[in-house]
Simulated scan of single mutants.
Amino acid sequence: MTTVRIRLLWHKQAQFAGFLLAEKLGLARRSGVEIVCEGLDFNMKHVAAVLSGATQMSVASPAHILESRAPEKLRFILTIQQESPLVYPARKTKGFTKPTDLKNGKIGVWPGHEDLELRWMLQRAGLAPDAVERIAMPDTVGPFLKGDLTSAQMTNYHELHVVEKALGHDALTIFSARDYDCSLIKDGLVVARDFAAEKPAAVQAVVDAVLEGWTIAFSEPERAVEACREARPDMSDEEHRQQLADIRALAIRGATLSHGLGYPDPRHVARAAQAMAEVENKSVPCEETGDARFWQAAPEAFRGRNWA
């Protein structure tokens, strides 16, 4: 039995329901593979864990790959979400109605190369790189609610719900990179290039299992809620259901409708490279970053379903 460890991008929750089901149900065992999902570790996040050899895979984005110390050693092989979930709320009562109002403000961001989309959005909105202070912190919600931050990086399936519940939706102006045509997807499956070359059958087994897990999650949501409850008992079933519904909305669009569930659209990699070129004036080779062969070899029943 080959063990494949997957470092998640955050704590275990419905955001990763398909991965959690693949692990819980042992969907890769029939191919001799044991999937182990590992929650977030701020000491060694996502692609850093893969590059160090601590894990074979991670949930990460094309931007994470391209901004890593060795992007040539990583491959982007699967994605479920086909749209960025990131939003940046600010208080209407403070007069924040457009991104340029954030000038001289403090914006909370998650530590470890998590703010490329934010920087791209602010640049396209007309703000200089040093116009705002970006403050790295693992909890962007608490400081924002206390008024310590002008705005903060959040997801529309988790942190934003917490803020809206506390302050009310109408009290917020919610900025989104989509409004400036510069959104970057967040969750994809990344594998070490060498592991993919040495153990392609194991990688294929994981891809097949993860796609099956997400198919179950979207078609039988209560099975996903059960798996999420076991992994994250501090959240209510209703919170898991809401988050899963939000993830589904991010997934059933774009390339999922045109190609199929999990398609690692090369345009996502190209957009991350474009962001780095515009924001950091850095040209990053990205032609070999994407690798769709494992998705293409997955069972049609899991990737080709008509999700529309």
Rank of each mutant, 00 (worst) to 15 (best):
T2P: 05
T3Y: 08
I6M: 10
L9P: 03
W10G: 00
H11F: 06
H11W: 06
F16K: 00
A17R: 06
L20D: 03
L21I: 15
L21D: 00
E23P: 01
E23I: 01
E23M: 03
E23G: 04
L25D: 08
R30E: 00
G32K: 01
G32S: 03
V33E: 05
D41Y: 02
H46P: 02
A49N: 10
L51A: 01
L51C: 02
S52W: 10
G53S: 09
M57V: 06
S58N: 09
S61H: 14
H64S: 07
I65W: 00
P71T: 02
K73L: 03
K73D: 00
L78M: 13
V87I: 07
V87H: 14
A90K: 07
K92I: 05
K94G: 11
G95R: 11
F96L: 14
T97W: 02
K98H: 08
K106F: 09
I107V: 15
W110M: 11
W110C: 05
M121V: 05
Q123I: 05
Q123M: 12
A128E: 15
D130P: 01
A131M: 13
I135T: 04
L145I: 04
K146P: 01
D148R: 00
L149D: 03
M154P: 00
N156K: 15
Y157C: 00
H158N: 10
H161C: 07
E164Y: 05
A166T: 09
L167Q: 01
L167W: 08
D170P: 03
A171Q: 15
I174P: 10
I174V: 15
S176I: 06
D181C: 05
D181Q: 13
C182R: 03
S183L: 04
L184K: 05
L189Y: 04
L189K: 04
R193E: 00
A196V: 06
A197T: 05
E198N: 14
K199E: 07
A202T: 05
A202W: 11
V207L: 11
D208E: 13
D208K: 04
L211M: 09
T215D: 07
A217G: 09
A217W: 14
F218I: 15
S219K: 11
A224D: 06
C228H: 11
P233W: 13
P233H: 12
M235V: 10
E239T: 13
H240N: 08
Q242G: 12
L244I: 09
L244P: 01
D246K: 14
I247K: 01
A251G: 12
L257Y: 04
L257C: 04
Y263T: 13
D265R: 07
R267L: 04
R271K: 14
A272L: 15
A275P: 02
A277C: 07
E280F: 10
K282M: 08
S283W: 07
D291L: 09
A297M: 10
F302W: 15
R303P: 00
G304A: 13
A308G: 14
